[in-house]
Simulated scan of single mutants.
Amino acid sequence: MMNLTTTEEYCQLCGGHLTSIHSLDELRYTIVYNVYTNGPLNAYTNTQSANYWTGLYSTNDGRTWKWNDGSPYNYSYWMSGYPYKGGPSCANLVINWGDYNNPSSYGMANNMNCSTSLYGICKYYS
């Protein structure tokens, strides 16, 4: 578990970036499914929910958002009430353990300070 900056540096050392998300299918079947079944805080660890760093950030108090890998911000799946304008400038993925096919069980939030230690989700490019 690391803060946002250190997690991004780790992803880069491994040949990627913190994940960007561009569709519900990518979120559900690539990211949430893999975290749900293989992640360090998964459905089998008896936690109610977990937060993971993603590569989404804002430089203007949450008015606009960007992916740190430079890909277009063309999709968002925020939890109800988010993004919180004036909240932290980094976004985390919240997964409430249940059925990964139920999109109301997960979504983006900006409720964690960027210096908070969380696991991150790296995306690698070939």
Rank of each mutant, 00 (worst) to 15 (best):
C11A: 15
M2F: 04
N60Y: 06
N34D: 13
A91C: 14
G98M: 02
Y36D: 07
N110S: 13
A109N: 09
T47R: 12
T7G: 01
M108K: 02
N68T: 07
N34S: 14
Y73W: 14
C90R: 04
S76M: 09
L56T: 05
Y36M: 09
S49C: 06
T64F: 06
Y119H: 12
T7P: 00
Q48L: 11
N92I: 11
Y44W: 13
Y75D: 05
Y106R: 05
E8A: 05
Y125D: 11
T5C: 07
N92W: 07
T54R: 00
P40N: 11
C14V: 07
A43E: 12
N102R: 12
N96C: 02
Y100I: 08
S105W: 01
M2D: 06
S76L: 07
M112H: 05
G86F: 08
Y73G: 07
N34P: 01
K85E: 02
G70Y: 06
T54P: 05
N68P: 06
L13F: 05
D61M: 12
E9D: 12
N38H: 14
P103Y: 10
H17K: 08
Q12T: 11
Y52T: 05
G87I: 09
G86E: 04
Y33F: 15
S117G: 11
Y33V: 08
C114F: 04
P40G: 04
T7S: 13
N96M: 06
Y77Q: 05
T30H: 05
S89I: 13
G15W: 07
M108L: 15
C122H: 01
